[in-house]
């Protein structure tokens, strides 16, 4: 049996116990995104008032960008923070000597990513609709492929973050939070790729999330769903997924060879 959902469910159960035992964990899931939403929301209102009709209503791009960025970020955090939880609680060795395949362990952290995204997305959508009249459902059918692509890319960034922490140990823990922000300036979250210098644009366009944010602005502007852009994002995700899996597996092999796995797990 190459992959066991039973094993994945056991690992996910652990996180469910953790979150249900400590409601403060939900606060952590909701607090920062809400702060971001409030800041961007009020900034949007202010800009709209200042513009006195001169600004297009599409300034709601800011709120849309913020919410979709949070999907990517929470998905990445689901993978990277779940791994760090095992390091912090010195439980990693117990998991690695249990009958758990690496792919099952990664899949469980990805599932945690989905749960984290789900909670945050529901709260942000409700608050954005109630406070600013921004309805995520305006993205229509495009919403699902947008979310799917961001979720996937978040997982892959999470795998890269985890691989780096495995390789560099405690000193690299901050990468669990920093990795998504390395790419944020290029991801066209709040502005189109066209504002970037020409030499940065190919790099920006190689990120699977960039077409999604561009696509979001297209849909919010009332234009048809850009299916070509969505397809492009899926293709880029395939490439990034393969690279992230290779990078993670190569680093895991390296830390097993050098004994760093045990050092990271018992630090």
């Amino acid at each position: 049996m190459p992959f066991s959902f039973h094993t994945v469910s056991a690992l996910v159960l652990r996180y469910l116990f953790l979150y249900t035992r400590h409601p403060v964990r939900f606060v952590e899931l909701i607090f920062w995104p809400l702060v971001d939403l409030l800041v961007w929301g009020f900034l949007t209102i202010y800009l709209q008032k200042q513009a006195a009709g001169g600004f297009p209503t599409t300034i709601t791009f800011l709120i849309g960008g913020m919410i979709l960025w949070d999907v990517l970020f929470r998905s990445q955090q689901g993978v990277a923070i779940s791994f760090l939880e095992d390091v912090w609680t010195r439980n990693l060795l117990n998991v690695f000597v249990a009958p758990v395949r690496t792919v099952e362990y990664v899949a469980a952290t990805c599932m945690v990513g989905i749960l984290r995204v789900g909670v945050t997305l529901v709260v942000l959508s409700v608050v954005a609709a109630a406070a600013y009249g921004f309805n995520l459902a305006h993205l229509g059918l495009a919403l699902l492929p947008f979310l799917a692509n961001l979720l996937l890319f978040g997982w892959f960034l999470g795998m890269v973050s985890t691989a780096l922490i495995l390789r560099w140990g405690q000193a690299a823990e901050s990468l669990a939070w920093a990795v998504p922000f390395f790419i944020q300036p290029l991801a066209a979250v709040f502005y189109p790729v066209s504002v970037l210098p020409g030499w940065l644009q190919p790099i920006a366009n190689s990120l699977p999330c960039t077409p999604i944010f561009e696509g979001m602005r297209t849909v919010l502007s009332g234009r048809p769903i850009p299916w070509g852009i969505i397809q492009n994002a899926f293709l880029l995700n395939l490439v990034w997924g393969a690279l992230a899996a290779w990078f993670f597996a190569a680093n895991l092999r390296h830390v097993r060879k050098t004994g760093l796995l045990v050092k990271v797990a018992t630090q």
């Binding site: 652990r14 116990f17 953790l18 035992r21 400590h22 939880e85 095992d86 609680t89 010195r90 439980n91 990693l92 060795l93 117990n94 797990a265 018992t266």
Partner: peptide
């Protein structure tokens, strides 16, 4: 030198 997750109950 290892431990079980400290924030869960023993039965969990």
């Amino acid at each position: 030198y290892t431990s079980l997750p400290s924030n869960l109950l023993v039965w969990q």
